[in-house]
Simulated scan of single mutants.
Amino acid sequence: MRVTFLGTSGAVPTTVRNPSGLLVEREGDRLLFDCGEGTQRQMMRYGTGFDVEHVFLTHTHGDHIFGLPGLTQTWDFQDRDTPLAVHAPAGTRDRIETLLSATGESPSYPVRVTQVSAGDVVLDREAYEVRAVGVNHRTNAVGYALVEDDRKGEFDREKAEGELGIPPGPKYSTLHAGEPVEHDGRTIQPEEVVGEPRSGRRLVYTGDTRPTDGVVEAAEGADLLVHDGTFGEDHRERALETAHSTAREAAQVASDAGAKRLALTHLSTRYTGQAAELESQAAERFDGTVFVPDDGTQVTVPYPDSDREFQVDQLG
C-alpha cells in the first residue's frame, strides 16, 4: 500500500504546500481522498497515475474540492469513458454536481455522486472496504477508513510435505482455502497446516476535524492515521474556534486508538518551516511514529506481520 501526500496545506496554499489531497494505491487500485486546487498537477508531478475511479471528499470547503472541476475536465480531454464515483457527505450532492458542471458542461463520461454518512461502507471490494468515519467540523463532514480483510494464515509446506506426506499440488490450495482433503486414508483438516488468519492493514484519513471518539474507534490499531494537525499549542483556542485540531490533540487521538503511525496534515501557513516543532509537540503524547509529510512525501505501509519497514520517500 502506497500513500502519496499531494497536498498538505491548510485552507490557504503556500509556495511549497498544496491544498488537501491524498492518493492511496492498493494492489493497483488508486483512490483519491479530497481534491484541493491543483491536485491534478500534483498527480502529474509525483507520478501517481490518473486511473482513479473513486474520489472521496471529506467536506465541501474549497480547499478540499476546488481541484475537482479541473481534474474531471482533463479526464474529458483524455477521452475517458470509465465511470467515476464521487463520494461526499450527506446533503452535499447538489453542490458537487454544480461544481462538476461549473463551465456549463458536464463530463462526457458517467459520473455518479453518492452521499455518505458516518458508519456507511462506501466502497466494498473483495479484500478491503472503505468506511465513512464520524468527524467534527464546521459543516457536514466525514473521514474515511480503508480497512483490509484478514488474510489467510501461512501455509506450513514443510509439515504438509514432510510430516503428512502430501505432495505439492491441488491439495495445498484446497487446504489453504479452508477445506479438508483426503490423503492416505485419513482426512487432513486445514488447521493442521494453515496458521491463524493474519491481520490486514488499516488507514484512516480524517480531513478537517476536532478530536472525536469516532476517529479513535475507527483508528484502533491503525497502521497509519492521517489526522488534521492544523495548529500548534500556541493557537489551541483558534483550533477550537475553527473546529480543527492541534498537533498534540491529534497525537492524543492516535495514542488513544493505539495507532502505529501518525501523519499530521492540513498545516496552517503560520507553521511554514516549523514542522519539527509540531512533530515535537505530538511526540509528547504519542509513542509511535509521528511525522509531518511534505507535498510529495510517499509512504509504503507494510502488512503488520511483514519484515518490511515502513518506508518514507520524498518524490519530485
Score class of each variant (00 low, 15 high):
1 M>W: 02
2 R>L: 09
2 R>P: 04
6 L>T: 06
6 L>F: 09
13 P>M: 01
16 V>H: 15
28 G>R: 08
34 D>S: 14
36 G>Y: 06
40 Q>G: 14
44 M>A: 12
48 T>V: 12
50 F>C: 02
50 F>I: 06
53 E>K: 09
57 L>Q: 03
60 T>P: 00
63 D>S: 09
67 G>A: 01
69 P>K: 01
70 G>F: 09
74 T>N: 01
81 D>C: 02
90 A>S: 04
92 T>G: 07
93 R>A: 13
102 A>H: 08
103 T>Y: 10
104 G>I: 09
104 G>H: 08
106 S>D: 00
109 Y>H: 11
109 Y>P: 03
112 R>E: 14
114 T>N: 11
114 T>M: 02
116 V>K: 11
124 D>S: 14
124 D>E: 15
125 R>M: 12
125 R>L: 08
128 Y>K: 08
129 E>Y: 03
129 E>F: 05
131 R>C: 13
131 R>I: 03
132 A>S: 09
135 V>R: 04
138 R>K: 10
147 V>P: 01
149 D>F: 13
152 K>T: 09
158 E>A: 15
160 A>H: 07
162 G>K: 15
167 P>L: 03
168 P>Y: 00
169 G>V: 05
173 S>D: 06
173 S>T: 03
174 T>H: 04
174 T>Y: 06
174 T>D: 05
182 E>W: 07
186 R>S: 12
187 T>I: 11
187 T>K: 06
191 E>N: 10
193 V>R: 06
194 V>I: 10
195 G>K: 10
196 E>G: 04
204 V>M: 05
212 T>D: 02
226 V>C: 04
227 H>N: 06
230 T>F: 01
230 T>P: 12
231 F>I: 05
233 E>K: 07
237 E>V: 14
238 R>K: 15
241 E>L: 13
245 S>K: 00
245 S>Q: 09
245 S>T: 13
249 E>M: 09
251 A>I: 06
254 A>K: 02
256 D>E: 15
258 G>T: 06
264 L>A: 07
266 H>A: 07
269 T>K: 15
272 T>D: 10
273 G>V: 03
273 G>P: 03
277 E>D: 13
279 E>N: 14
285 R>W: 00
289 T>V: 14
292 V>H: 05
294 D>H: 13
297 T>L: 08
298 Q>V: 14
305 D>N: 10
308 R>D: 13
309 E>P: 00
312 V>I: 15
314 Q>W: 08
314 Q>L: 09
316 G>C: 11
